Amino acid sequence: MTDADRDRATAQQRRIWDEAAPSYDASMAILERIWFGGGREWLGARAHGRVLEVAVGTGSNVLRFPPDAVVTGIDLSPAMLEQARRRLAAAGRVATLLEADAESLPFDDGSFDTVVCALGLCSIPHPARAIAEMYRVLEPGGTLLLLDHVASSWPPLRLGQRLVEAVTVRVAGEHFTRRQRPLVEAAGFTVDEAERLKAGTIERIRASKPVRSREQPGSPLVG
């Protein structure tokens, strides 16, 4: 894929999420209860220290992070970030919110103790690049927390996901048959905790970046 193709994919995602931002929370309310229930609490209970949330959206996860966590959130969509700023201001929660691309994070290596991404890798154009960036900005020994919808472990449902995806990928760049765990392992993470729910369509992953010298060879490559 050329740089121009990547730029077009990024611009499309920014436009989609800018348009969705005003109604996003209302449109997700039912899914939050019946499909993703407990997921955001699961993330919040495991986040610690300097926390980066990739694809922070409207900021609902930030309110679940520990009070002493130092939180930075990035999103491609200015409109989503505006919704997040309003939510956090109303709750009295302090966080740094920045417009940035998950595939090219504007942070130094080892800047964070925890990186969180919830329901983001399903629509990020190049998830392997994003996960490699999450690896880079984590401190050795740091924690990666992912929550996303993935390809079902039940073949008939997986077939249905493919049919839905034929429309959603074209219209909204949203994938239903991706699986993040192989990408996490390929990036060099160690998976410490993982579970699949709802016929395998929801996956929660806690992984860690190995503790090793930064001069040691073997850092993951971005393809």
Rank of each mutant, 00 (worst) to 15 (best):
M1P: 03
R8S: 14
R8G: 11
A9I: 01
T10Q: 06
R15E: 10
W17Y: 11
W17A: 00
W17I: 05
D18V: 09
P22D: 02
S23W: 02
Y24W: 15
D25N: 13
A26Y: 06
M28Y: 12
A29E: 14
A29N: 12
I30Y: 08
I30P: 00
L31R: 11
E32I: 02
G37N: 11
G38H: 08
R40Y: 10
E41I: 13
W42H: 06
L43K: 03
R50H: 15
R50W: 15
V51W: 02
L52F: 14
L52G: 06
V54S: 07
G57H: 09
T58I: 06
N61I: 05
L63D: 00
R64G: 02
F65C: 01
P66R: 04
V71N: 04
T72D: 03
I74W: 03
D75K: 07
L76A: 04
S77N: 04
S77F: 14
S77H: 02
P78Y: 14
M80G: 11
L81F: 10
R85L: 08
R85C: 05
L88D: 01
A90F: 02
R93H: 05
V94Q: 14
V94L: 10
A95S: 12
T96I: 09
A100H: 05
E103P: 00
E103H: 03
S104F: 07
L105V: 08
P106T: 08
F107S: 07
D109Y: 05
F112N: 01
C117R: 06
A118N: 08
L119Y: 12
G120Y: 02
C122D: 03
I124E: 04
I124T: 13
P125I: 11
I131S: 03
I131C: 04
I131V: 15
E133L: 13
E133K: 09
M134R: 09
E139L: 15
G141T: 04
L144A: 03
L146K: 01
L147R: 06
L147F: 10
V150I: 15
S153D: 15
S153T: 14
W154M: 09
W154N: 06
P155M: 11
L157C: 12
L157D: 00
R158L: 15
R162Q: 13
A166Y: 03
V167L: 13
T168L: 11
V169I: 12
V171S: 13
G173P: 05
H175S: 07
T177D: 09
T177W: 05
R179F: 03
L183C: 04
G188T: 08
F189C: 05
F189N: 03
T190P: 02
V191W: 13
D192V: 11
A194S: 11
A194Y: 01
E195R: 15
E195N: 06
R196G: 03
L197V: 12
E203L: 08
A207M: 04
V211T: 15
R212W: 08
S213F: 05
R214S: 15
P217L: 08
L221K: 08
G223E: 09
